[in-house]
Design a protein around this nucleic acid. Structure first.
Lengths: 226, 226
DNA sequence: TCGCGTTCGTTAGAAGTTATAACTCCATTG
DNA sequence: CAATGGAGTTATAACTTCTAACGAACGCGA
């Protein structure tokens, strides 16, 4: 999570303070969203005065960028852990939903409304590729009978982006569809667009996982929830 | 768009200024996103001083809420116009994508990251139901052969929410899936998560429309039935 | 052990924001 | 025509991010 080397005591202290700042920032974001994040309030919470934080983050954007990067890292680690226990697509779907529900604002920090001018730094896109690689592994591992689709031929460059992943084109397409469909259900659920409609979003999510042809998905894979 | 009756010249003037404020607000949002909207900047653009705007909107939130409501209205009208020309689901999918690409920030104002505390006013949820009604009409009109799915039985309350729409359960489910899947592709595209991946988002979108079994699009592409 | 330099945290302050209060002035209305 | 009410104004308070200058403490090298 923190900076790699923490040899000198000063660096150790610095990393610790940086971590606490991010921690408080997450707290604020969970309550009022990322746009309401206040450096001043964080400093006050930590018992020090405003400008002190600028020793640790050059500005507000840099703090938020660090949080975004941590969020990406968190999802990548979650997928990696789930992959350890066997690469099944259903497991990844389950892990994704748990990760999202665990902290909706963290999910939105990664997949939510972007700031028009903002460009993601290179290392976050690398983590994004890492996340997609887990998906591709799982799709390549359990390949259902799937007829070729017109889209497949368009995915040559996409394969290059994914680091020349050796999965077949149909797996590339399936990973992409997995991503977009589950994000569709998840983001609308977390945004509260289903409230009052009277159905269980978990059921809708499970239904989409089934529709993706995940092996063994008919079982109560997601029923264990809550 | 504005207030219904504009009888007295004062009210007409008031509605006109309100409209101009919203117009400038849209301009700012398109450039820097909703979180960067500044009442002061709008006032300066209009050649008047800051607090004058508070005659027209009680606060920043009320202005944004008005914009959200207009955005909902805009989408509902777009769907209504498309429905005039025949209720086909493919047409709605096309209209939705055009509407989203026409102003991405407008799309995100409706379907993007929500502010944790914010509760949508009652009339926006009514417009949301109106939008869904168009979807349900189209789904009920062109009903493909679809096997019942486990989710269908959970949609009783949802039917009530949708104003007791007479569509069969399978149509309800299909409208819901239409919404979540297309939103999944669209929101990721507009957020720029596909940039650099080297495939055409329009193709991915069209592929999902096809997978939904929209008549006219070549069906039977997906192993959806399993 | 003793400096001395790096770094941390401070206060002061500039420039911006939302929002309220009080005041002027004009238009509409009775 | 006069009175009322709405529009726009300035002044002000309480925020925000962020820069600049200063003091003090910490730790590293001699």
């Amino acid at each position: 999570m923190g900076e790699p080397g923490a040899r000198t005591p000063r660096e150790r202290y610095r990393a610790q303070v940086r971590e606490e700042i991010k921690q408080r920032a997450w707290g604020q974001i969970a309550i009022a969203g990322a746009s309401a994040l206040s450096l001043n309030a964080i400093a006050k919470q930590m018992g020090m005065s405003g400008p002190a934080l600028y020793r640790y983050f050059a500005n507000r954007d840099e703090l938020i960028t660090a949080l975004v990067k941590d969020a990406y890292r968190s999802l990548a680690d979650t997928f990696a852990a789930r992959t350890e226990a066997g690469t099944d697509l259903g497991g990844l779907a389950d892990a994704l939903r748990r990760w999202a529900l665990d902290d909706p604002q963290r999910y939105f920090l990664v997949y939510g409304t972007p700031v028009p001018g903002y460009e993601a730094p290179e290392d976050t896109t690398r983590i994004a590729a890492e996340i997609m690689a887990h998906l591709l592994d799982a799709c390549a591992a359990e390949q259902p009978p799937a007829p070729p689709r017109p889209l497949d031929s368009h995915l040559a460059e996409y394969r290059a982006w994914a680091g020349e992943h050796p999965a077949p084109s149909s797996a590339l397409r399936r990973a992409l569809t997995f991503w977009t469909r589950l994000h569709g259900v998840l983001s609308l659920e977390l945004a509260g667009h289903f409230t009052g409609m009277g159905f269980d979003p978990a059921e809708l999510y499970a239904d989409e996982v089934r529709a993706l042809g995940v092996s063994g998905a008919d079982a109560a894979m997601l029923a264990e929830e809550k």
